[in-house]
Design a binder for these strands. Structure first.
Lengths: 192, 192
DNA sequence: AACAAATACATGTACATACATGTAATATAA
DNA sequence: TTATATTACATGTATGTACATGTATTTGTT
């Protein structure tokens, strides 16, 4: 019998056994030993810390942790489509104008992470034939991108999955979500 | 006169002029032309999108964007100390047990981003002589880390700055921050 | 028209993430 | 005790972030 695979089936793969970060319980799945995990909901358990200076300080860490959690959850789903989170974002942005073409700057301005290196993300999408790239003849500095039919197709399939995931995963009514949005915008109220 | 540096002084460096993502206004600073920026507070402006399926969907994107904004803001401050965000995190975690030593797994379990590659972050801190590394003689699989005096010093200085930044930046009372924490934990309530 | 300035983006580097795999050390079981 | 399982971590690869710089193209000025 091969050595059992002792790996957390989703996150925290480096922390495999009996680590208090996780409430773990293993089970066998065919020839695999799969780690079930329950990622912890309370921030204090998640990062093993209770020493926050105040609730605002805790909120900062909570935002960072929740973003990581969300990104990881989505990435796991996107992996089934051979897409990374950022590649999916670019496809989604292109879809917004489809079948119109968009230049790098337009795409960059719509990215969530503003320091993304859009040309290189496009490189990978072009390799997978999900995006096609051409030069603008009106202004040759512009590189114009648009979705291929394969790109449209994979985006539709993956978006359906992601939306389903979101709806099932986050048990939140519109009023609470609205409140959350207001509070997050309050965090960003003062600009540095 | 040299070509003016047309660069956003903080974020969105790729989007320099008249981009609606930013409400820009330039000014001269010595020989530099510096871009002042006002990063947009409303998510709709920040990512130029209004088509959210519902408030929960918007909240997901809002969390991701706010986390990016927060990380970028902190990183800018940490750059003055020659530290990255992740290197700072590791120092902070080591400080929690100082002068006790910690192994890789202990540190990893306390990281906000659970998939961080702790040994390599440590590599860089050791190079800067902020952390020292040794092998546990009781269990030679363990690598033990602790802060050097220089590490303690730089952590104190940078933490003072980061705390000050936090307090001045985020205009939020304890009650609102508490509400925010509750809502973020509600987002993570169901585990995938 | 000719030159300078500005723009758009490609590309290079250091660091980080996400994940797979290799290796030495320890724990457990036959 | 010896073989096997398990752990801890180092290391390799692909991708992404953050930022600096190079280059072709366009715009603005004289």
């Amino acid at each position: 019998m091969p050595a059992p695979v002792l790996k957390c089936c989703f996150c925290c793969k480096q922390i495999v056994n009996l680590n208090p970060v996780l409430k773990t319980a293993g089970f066998k799945f065919g020839k695999l030993y799969v780690h079930t995990y329950i990622c912890v909901v309370k921030l204090e358990e998640a990062i093993k810390s209770v020493n926050f200076r105040n609730q605002t300080h805790k909120a900062g860490l909570n935002i960072l942790y929740t973003a990581w959690w969300l990104k990881t959850t989505m990435s796991r789903e996107l992996k089934n489509f051979g897409l990374t989170h950022e590649q999916y974002n670019v496809l989604r942005i292109l879809k917004g104008k489809n079948p119109e073409e968009m230049c790098v700057k337009d795409i960059a301005g719509r990215m969530i992470e503003k320091s993304s290196n859009v040309p290189r993300i496009i490189d990978r999408l072009v390799l997978k034939k999900l995006v096609k790239r051409s030069t603008d003849l009106e202004d040759k500095r512009h590189t114009l991108m648009s979705l291929t039919p394969a790109g449209v197709n994979i985006l539709e399939l993956s978006t359906a999955k992601i939306n389903k995931l979101f709806d099932e995963l986050i048990p939140m009514d519109d009023a609470s979500a609205s409140k959350l949005n207001t509070l997050l915008e309050k965090v960003r109220e003062k600009e540095p």
